[in-house]
Simulated scan of single mutants.
Amino acid sequence: MRLFALQESRILGEAVATQLGIILDTHEERRFDDGEHKTRPLVSVHGEDVYIIQSLGGDQTVSANDKLCKLLFFAAACRENGAAQVSTIVPYLAYARKDRQTKARDPVTLKYVAQLFEAMGVARVVTVDVHNVAAFQNAFRCATINLTSFDLFYPHIEWLVEGGPVTILSPDAGGIKRAQLIRESFERVRGTPVGLAMMEKRRSEDVVTSDLFAGDVEGRCVIIVDDLIATGTTILHAAAISFFVASSFKPS
């Protein structure tokens, strides 16, 4: 087995390697003056099962596009040099949010990204709490694994609520299944009932509005569960709506 972590995910890679009791395999990354880059393994991968760690969240220093290209090219290089199988570990999968057409002539970007992974010979894609599990599994023809981090949050939620009543809130209709799963598993951990609430969300030109709120939040600690946060406007809006509903005021 060979385990690599590309530069932007080096800290995570080292943590994974420590848990496995191994060290990361070495590789080279070069960036050229015109913005192109080259990445290659510095150890033999011939006949090996190769695992590559690279999260694809963009920031001001490295875009999601650069991270994606680097991962794809490195995976292809491993296959080109005889790797028996290449698996990519992608905690945040870029473009997963665009998994269907919601407007005329919309792209289905998740499907296109899946085709790129497959074209590079990737055998398996592992991600964490992907935006839409069903869409993720259907987009890829190679093996897919979606890991969940739900259990990691329960002790902290319990500490926050101090034993009081809890409601899990989904800030949009598309996330209701996620909220239901968290509610059910938290109830099993807690041994007491956990409430469920949902807010309808509409977004137009980055302005978030809602006309529908369902669920009991009065006198409860409300835990808002969402999978992607870019500007935070949805979370802020859901928190404000919850407060108004719990206080018996209707938002304007």
Results as ranks from 00 to 15, higher is better:
P107M: 08
N132R: 04
L24P: 02
V62M: 03
S44T: 15
T18G: 06
E184S: 12
V43D: 05
P91I: 04
Q101M: 11
L71C: 11
R124V: 00
V133T: 12
G219W: 13
E187V: 12
E205T: 06
I229M: 07
L24F: 04
H37Y: 08
Y95V: 04
L196F: 00
L110H: 13
E184N: 14
A173G: 03
N138Y: 03
F249A: 08
S44D: 11
Q137M: 09
Q54I: 02
N132E: 08
L24T: 04
A76H: 05
Q7I: 00
G82E: 03
A75M: 06
D33F: 03
T234Q: 08
L110M: 11
V126E: 12
Q60N: 13
R190A: 10
D211G: 10
I229F: 01
T61H: 10
D151N: 05
L212S: 05
V222A: 03
M199H: 05
V125M: 01
A76W: 00
L3P: 03
F153D: 01
K111N: 13
V128Y: 01
L147Q: 05
E80G: 01
D151R: 12
D216R: 02
K177S: 10
C78N: 02
T26H: 10
T26P: 13
A84E: 15
F150P: 00
F153I: 14
T18Q: 14
K111A: 14
V122P: 12
E118N: 06
S149K: 00
K98L: 10
S55E: 01
D216W: 00
E205A: 14
G164I: 00
E36W: 01
A239C: 12
R100A: 09
G215Q: 09
A139L: 02
R2M: 02
E48D: 14
V161K: 08
F213D: 02
T109L: 12
L12A: 12
R178G: 04
S248N: 15
P91R: 04
C221G: 04
E48I: 00
T167I: 08
Y92P: 05
M199Q: 13
V128K: 05
G58D: 11
L212K: 11
S9W: 08
S210P: 03
L20Y: 07
K201N: 06
R188T: 12
T234P: 11
A179Q: 01
N65C: 02
A5R: 07
T109N: 10
L169Q: 06
C221N: 14
